[in-house]
C-alpha cells in the first residue's frame, strides 16, 4: 500500500485504532438510534405538524392554521360549560406540589433511618419496596376496594372515590402512600456513598446531632440525586395520569382529572382521530410553558443548591 506523504507508522496505528473503535461504537448504537429516529424524532415532528392540521372522521388531514391552539386555550380559560381541562391542569399542579412539599421530605427522613440502620432497617427496606414489587395495579385495586369498603364504613362515607369531597384527597394520599419504595432506596444508597472523610471532617467541625448531620453533610452530598428527581419531576408532572386509569378506567369523574389522564382518555377512548390535533396543539402550548420553568429550576438548583464545604 502506498504511504501518504508525511504519514508516520505511529499515525497509521493511531488511525487504525480509531477506525476499530468507531467500528465498535456506531454499529452497537445503530439499532437503538434508528428506533430513536422513528419513535422520538419523527413522532415529535409529526405531533408538531399535527398541531396545525385538522383531521376529519375518515382520517383525512387539512391545514387548520392556529385553530387548534385557539380551541385548547378556550377550553382552559374560557369554556364555562366544560371546565374539565382547567380542573386537570389545577389537579396536576396540586399533585406536584404535594409531592414536593410532603413526599420529598418524608423520602429523605425515611432514607435517613434506613441509612442509619435503625432497628429493623432491613425489614423496613424490604417492606417499603412492596408497592413496586407486588404491582401498582394490585395495590391500586386493593386500595380502591379498601377505600370503598372498610375505610368508607369507618368514616361513614358513601363511595368515597366517587364523591367530590373525598376522591381527590384519597388519590393524593394513595400516590404518596405507594411512592416510598424506589425513592427511599435511591436516597439511602446515595447517603451510603457519601465519602467517610466528609463525615469525619464534619464531626470535627462540631456537626454531631442527626438533624445537623442531615442538614450540613448528607443533604448537600446527595443534592445531585435530589435535584435529578426534582428536575425530572417538574418535567413530567403534566404528563402523569396518577392512578386514575386504574381506579376508573376511562370513566373518572371530572373533578379528579389530571392533564395526563385528560390526554389518555381523549386519545384512547375516542372512536376517531378528529380530536388529536387539538391535543397536539395543547401539548405544544404546555411544553412552551413548562420548558422555561424546567430550565429555571435546573439553573436555580445548580446555583443555589447546598454545598458540603
Amino acid at each position: 500500500m502506498k504511504q501518504k506523504p508525511g504519514m508516520t507508522g505511529a499515525v497509521k496505528i493511531k488511525r487504525k485504532t480509531e477506525v476499530k473503535k468507531l467500528l465498535f461504537v456506531w454499529p452497537m448504537m445503530l439499532y437503538p438510534l434508528s428506533l430513536f429516529a422513528v419513535f422520538w424524532v419523527y413522532k415529535n415532528i409529526s405531533s408538531f405538524t399535527m398541531a396545525f392540521q385538522s383531521i376529519d372522521a375518515f382520517g383525512k388531514t387539512s391545514w387548520a392554521g392556529l385553530d387548534n391552539f385557539k380551541t385548547f386555550l378556550y377550553d382552559i380559560f374560557q369554556n364555562e360549560s366544560d371546565t374539565i381541562l382547567r380542573t386537570a391542569v389545577i389537579r396536576s399542579l396540586l399533585m406536584y406540589g404535594v409531592n414536593l412539599l410532603i413526599s420529598m421530605p418524608l423520602y429523605i427522613f425515611f432514607s435517613y433511618a434506613i441509612y442509619k440502620k435503625c432497628p429493623g432497617h432491613a425489614l423496613w427496606r424490604f417492606l417499603m419496596m412492596l408497592p413496586n414489587i407486588i404491582s401498582a395495579f394490585i395495590f391500586g385495586l386493593l386500595f380502591k376496594r379498601f377505600a370503598n369498603g372498610p375505610i368508607a364504613s369507618l368514616f361513614s362515607w358513601d363511595t368515597p372515590l366517587r364523591s367530590a369531597g373525598t376522591a381527590f384527597p384519597l388519590i393524593l394520599f394513595y400516590m404518596i402512600w405507594v411512592s416510598f419504595g424506589t425513592n427511599m432506596l435511591v436516597y439511602s444508597n446515595a447517603m451510603k456513598e457519601v465519602d467517610d472523610a466528609v463525615k469525619e471532617s464534619a464531626k470535627l467541625d462540631g456537626v454531631s446531632g442527626m438533624l445537623s448531620e442531615l442538614r450540613y453533610v448528607l443533604i448537600p452530598s446527595i443534592f445531585p440525586t435530589i435535584s435529578t428527581f426534582l428536575i425530572v419531576g417538574v418535567a413530567g408532572f403534566l404528563m402523569q395520569s396518577g392512578p386514575l386509569v386504574m381506579f376508573y378506567m376511562y370513566n373518572a369523574p371530572g373533578y379528579v382529572y389530571t392533564t395526563g389522564y385528560y390526554f389518555t382518555v381523549r386519545i384512547f377512548n375516542t372512536p376517531n382521530q378528529t380530536g388529536y390535533p387539538a391535543l397536539a396543539a395543547g401539548g405544544l402550548i404546555i411544553t412552551a410553558v413548562t420548558v422555561p420553568v424546567v430550565m429555571t429550576v435546573r439553573r436555580a438548583l445548580e446555583k443555589l443548591g447546598p454545598s458540603v464545604e
Binding site: N44, L238, A280, G283, I286, T287
Partner: peptide
C-alpha cells in the same frame, strides 16, 4: 425537557 401531547402522534 417535557414534550407533551405527543401520544396522539
Amino acid at each position: 425537557v417535557p414534550i407533551i401531547g405527543t401520544e396522539a402522534a
